[in-house]
Amino acid sequence: MRPILVFCLPAIGDFIRCHAAIQIIAGRFPGQPIDIVTSRIAAPLARLMPHVRKVWIAEKHWKPGLKERLRLARKLRGENYQASYMLTSSTKASLVPWLAGIPERIGYPREFQFGIVNRLPAGWLKSMIAFGPRKTRLAEQVCAVACRGKKPAEDRPLPAPRLVVSAEELAGWRQRNGIDPARPVIAFYTSDFANKRSWPMERFVSIARDHVARGWSVWLVGGPRERQAAAEIRAHLPEAIDFTSTPDIAESMCQIAASTVFLGVDGGISHAAGALGGPCVLIYGSNRAYVHGPVNEQVLFVEPPISTPGWVENTRAVSEDRVREALTAAIQKNTPQFT
């Protein structure tokens, strides 16, 4: 069977949401290999995605671009792909399967790639002339491409993105890092405290102290953007363990998978936490969680009161008490042994 190629979005959160579409394609073509194209930063997560055979790297910003696209297209030509699904509407991305000679190139021509994209989903014209803010979530948009524009039955919900860390990999990570699997852990993803999507530092510290007093470990996860925030938290709470210097994002997935509950704000790492399937509480700005948040069922969102105007993106109106209640509910629902 000839393989299928899926062009995914490059940012981590958007890339993870693309896995909903990959699952639909895998269901339509059982047994056919599925390869993906994404950015270098998101690529390490591909091996944790069910149904993905191989990943190709396409940098988000190619300069000047044509030489790199030709080089990738030449490699893809040798793979004999049957079809390509364009989950991104970028013309730069659409050029690659066209140059590679992939016969069926499916996607919405939102940048007028007629001919470059040669299989248009149902309702493509309506999508082209739509104005104003998009009301559908990004996961729904990429699933529309995978379904070729046909609406799924109402009694069949769209698949939620999934990332899977094996029990063996998780046990090896715990052993290498001296982690006691019996001790409960709360993992914090703070983003940069200067970011309007974050939550005040003193509230994270307060939640952390509550858990330390009950014998929990506190882990600070993320990357370079979160290192200063982690340092500020540790200045008030030296017991917290800083994992933000982790060089590999796949290592961060082990940290989240090994934790008992995850508390985070809007960001790609929070989408990963949702896809890993563990208890997850996310703090979002007003009216933003539905459109921008993960679609995984076990994720609990805490947002400002409904009376807060929708243009208020910061999270200061979210109280510590509401977050504590959400954490308790998430733990009780998903890990009864820690209630």
Rank of each mutant, 00 (worst) to 15 (best):
W56H: 15
W62P: 13
W62E: 14
R134H: 07
L125D: 01
L66H: 02
S90L: 13
A21R: 01
A21H: 03
R134S: 12
L138P: 01
S89K: 04
G101Q: 02
P64H: 13
H51G: 00
R28V: 09
S84W: 00
V52N: 07
L95G: 09
T38W: 04
V52D: 09
I25F: 01
R137Y: 00
S89W: 05
I22Q: 02
F114R: 10
R40H: 06
L138W: 06
V142C: 02
F112P: 00
R17E: 01
Y81S: 01
G107D: 09
I24H: 08
V142E: 04
K135V: 04
A20G: 09
I102S: 01
I41P: 00
A21Y: 08
I106G: 03
K60E: 15
A83I: 03
E111P: 06
L87Y: 09
L45G: 04
S94N: 12
S127G: 11
I36S: 10
R53G: 03
A20N: 02
L72V: 14
A46E: 03
A144L: 12
F114I: 10
V55H: 05
S90A: 15
W98C: 12
L48M: 13
Q141R: 04
R28E: 15
C18I: 00
S94I: 02
I24L: 15
I57C: 03
G149I: 15
A43R: 05
V37Q: 05
D35H: 14
K126N: 14
F29M: 12
R17F: 00
